[in-house]
């Protein structure tokens, strides 16, 4: 079994605040890993460190079992918490730019753009200016930009935030489809009904992974009715 992402003993602090305290995370090939935790728990920092966009104080990160290289980024789809789109451009031009940067050319690029747009139901809005997009459309376009080059590995930071339930369900169907094609992904979320759709989840709280495993196993292990309750249990609340 290979590991698309492996982070070991990661520490990170900003000024006096400790954000990550000895966090280790291994993503298995072909799984959806849900990183859950309250806001401020360090999810985004962890994702950025795994990507190599931020340097950990100590610890190691491996992408595809190697230290991160530019070449590895070709097989990686990243979606940040912000939409990260160019407002002046049309949806098509946005996708076209990110596809070009990922090395797609000519006819292949065009096909991939249309496919990615179809995945997020934006194929009819491609000519529109992104500035006229609603929040949900922007989120979906941002996701399309992350998957336009068909990466093997996805790091998605809150991909469904601000989307209505129907679209959210469609997007999770898309994740399952991508997984079926062999992709692995780390998804951060704090929506608990999404947790059940993950193969494995890691609970991040105050810089520690307090529990990790499949949702069912966790519920059994801690004897709680939902994964959410584990946070409360750890806080010392009596259920």
């Amino acid at each position: 079994m290979t590991y698309p992402i492996k982070g070991e003993h990661l520490h990170k602090h900003y000024k006096k605040q400790v954000v990550l305290d000895d966090v280790s995370l291994t993503l298995h090939e072909g799984e959806i890993y849900g990183l859950i935790g309250p806001s401020g728990a360090g999810k985004t920092t962890l994702v950025k460190i795994l990507l190599g966009l931020e340097k950990a104080d100590s610890g190691t990160v491996q992408l595809f079992e190697q230290p991160p290289t530019l070449h590895a980024f070709r097989s990686l789809g990243y979606m940040a918490q912000s939409d990260a789109l160019y407002n002046e451009l049309s949806a098509y031009q946005n996708l076209e730019f990110f596809a070009s940067v990922q090395g797609l050319r000519g006819k292949e690029k065009k096909e991939r753009i249309l496919e990615a747009a179809k995945h997020v139901n934006l194929e009819n809005a491609l000519k529109k200016n992104v500035a006229q997009f609603s929040g949900g459309m922007r989120r979906r376009l941002s996701l399309a930009a992350a998957l336009v080059h068909e990466p093997r590995l996805y790091l998605l930071d809150e991909p469904t935030v601000g989307l209505d339930p129907l679209i959210r369900r469609n997007i999770w169907t898309l994740f399952q489809y991508l997984k079926g094609k062999g992709a692995s992904m780390i998804v951060t979320t704090h929506v608990m009904d999404e947790v059940a759709r993950c193969d494995r989840v890691g609970l991040l709280s105050e810089g520690h992974i307090i529990a990790e495993g499949s949702p069912e196993a966790l519920i059994q292990e801690f004897n709680v009715s939902s994964v959410e309750d584990i946070f409360l249990l750890k806080e010392g609340a009596h259920l």
Partner: peptide, 14 residues
């Protein structure tokens, strides 16, 4: 500020 630089940083562009 919009995060597009992060997206570029997570891509093979030099």
């Amino acid at each position: 500020t919009t995060g597009t630089l992060d997206r570029l940083m997570a891509s093979p562009i030099k």
